[in-house]
Simulated assay, not measured.
Amino acid sequence: MGELALVEAVRMALARALEDDPRVILLGEDIGVNGGVFRATDGLAARFGVDRVLDTPLAETAIAGIAVGAAAHGLRPVAEIQFMGFLYPALDQLANHAARLRNRTRGRLTCPMVLRAPFGGGIHAPEHHSESFEAMLAHVPGLRVVVPSSPARAYGLLLAAIRDPDPVVFLEPKRLYRSIREEVTDDGAALPLDRAVMLSAGEDVTLVTWGAMVQEAREAVEGMAAEGVSVELIDLSALKPIDRATIRRSVAKTGRCVVLHEAPLTAGLGAEIAADLAEHCLTHLLAPIRRVAPPDVVIPYPRLEDHYMPTTGQVVGTIREVMEFS
């Protein structure tokens, strides 16, 4: 047991999976000799061999396609896309093949692959390096989409994703890669891929978020507590399937809901959550459901990024507004 950063917990989970299951292979750009752009796979090629930790050409379509083929033939590939913004070429393989293989073969074949990708802003990266289009992936039937918010959750969720019989897109909030540390035990224990986590109990308002935005959400919870407002904080974790039951139970208790995400506002997952609550919790609502999200623009270059990302102040202001609604 020891304190690890999130990227170190990812590496530990990958090592555990490689050690426990000879069917697991890793593939991606510069993941072998160089250990990946964020060093998530550092040392794994030397430990497990280049036949199990494979460097690939700069070709995202090929990386995803190879993973689909390998999974269909009995392996458990874990493919890395260097940044989520480079994932677009891989969408063809994910949506048309990985997600459909079980249905296409009437269950004769499955696609037990994981596609890892660092995502989100906040590190002042250049264009295409700070994307957050998780809602696009969640819209694809047959794909699981998972986002950890801490080192321990990254370890357990990644192991569960690798062991799952169907394709999982595992999005790693790179702003958290080295910004937080916590105790992580290398015990091989997986976490459920379909459950949200209640990070703090509350009575007045439900705050739902995921990934790096959990940090701003925690700060908002503390700020509202100083004002006498009790906030129930839910880390969604599984973006597909969404743990709707946990959110509904919370909102049935609090009567208010704010959803926070760093993906653009329109058609983001906040809209799906709001629609579900409007359908199933209407009689419990004491105020309109509110979303805190960036505007519908391309995430700007570094100097303007801080004006784009949602802030703790915005979350606090929105919670105050739902509390004052009458």
Rank of each mutant, 00 (worst) to 15 (best):
G2V: 10
E3C: 14
E8I: 00
M12K: 04
L18A: 08
L18V: 09
E19T: 10
D20H: 14
D30T: 10
V33F: 06
G36P: 14
G36N: 12
T41Y: 06
D42V: 12
A46H: 10
A46Y: 12
F48M: 05
V50C: 09
D51S: 15
V53P: 11
E60I: 09
I63Y: 06
A64D: 11
G69Y: 03
A70V: 00
A71H: 05
A71R: 13
A72Y: 07
H73N: 15
G74E: 10
R76E: 07
E80S: 07
G85W: 06
L91K: 02
N96V: 05
A98T: 01
N103C: 07
G107R: 05
R108A: 13
L109P: 14
C111N: 12
M113H: 13
V114I: 11
P118S: 05
G121S: 04
G122S: 11
A125S: 14
E127A: 14
H128D: 08
M136Q: 09
H139A: 12
V140Q: 08
G142V: 11
R144A: 10
V145R: 08
V147N: 01
P148V: 08
S149D: 12
S149Y: 15
R153C: 13
L158W: 03
L159R: 01
A160M: 02
A161K: 11
R163H: 14
R163E: 14
R163K: 15
P165L: 03
F170Y: 15
S179R: 15
E182N: 03
E182P: 00
E183K: 08
T185K: 10
D186M: 07
A190S: 14
A190K: 05
L191K: 05
P192A: 06
P192H: 08
L193T: 13
L193M: 13
L193E: 13
D194F: 03
R195L: 07
V197E: 14
V205F: 04
V208Q: 03
G211A: 05
E216F: 02
E216S: 15
R218C: 12
E222C: 06
G223T: 06
A225E: 14
G228Q: 13
G228H: 13
V229R: 07
E232R: 14
L236S: 00
A238E: 02
P241I: 10
A245K: 09
T246E: 06
T246M: 14
I247R: 00
I247L: 06
S250R: 04
S250Q: 06
T254E: 01
G255E: 02
R256P: 01
V259N: 01
L260W: 00
L260K: 02
H261P: 08
E262Y: 00
T266L: 02
A267K: 09
E272T: 12
E272Q: 11
I273Y: 00
A274F: 01
A275I: 05
D276M: 09
D276Q: 03
L277M: 12
H280M: 02
H284N: 13
P295F: 04
I299W: 08
Q314F: 01
V315R: 04
V315L: 09
I319W: 02
I319N: 01
R320V: 15
E324D: 09
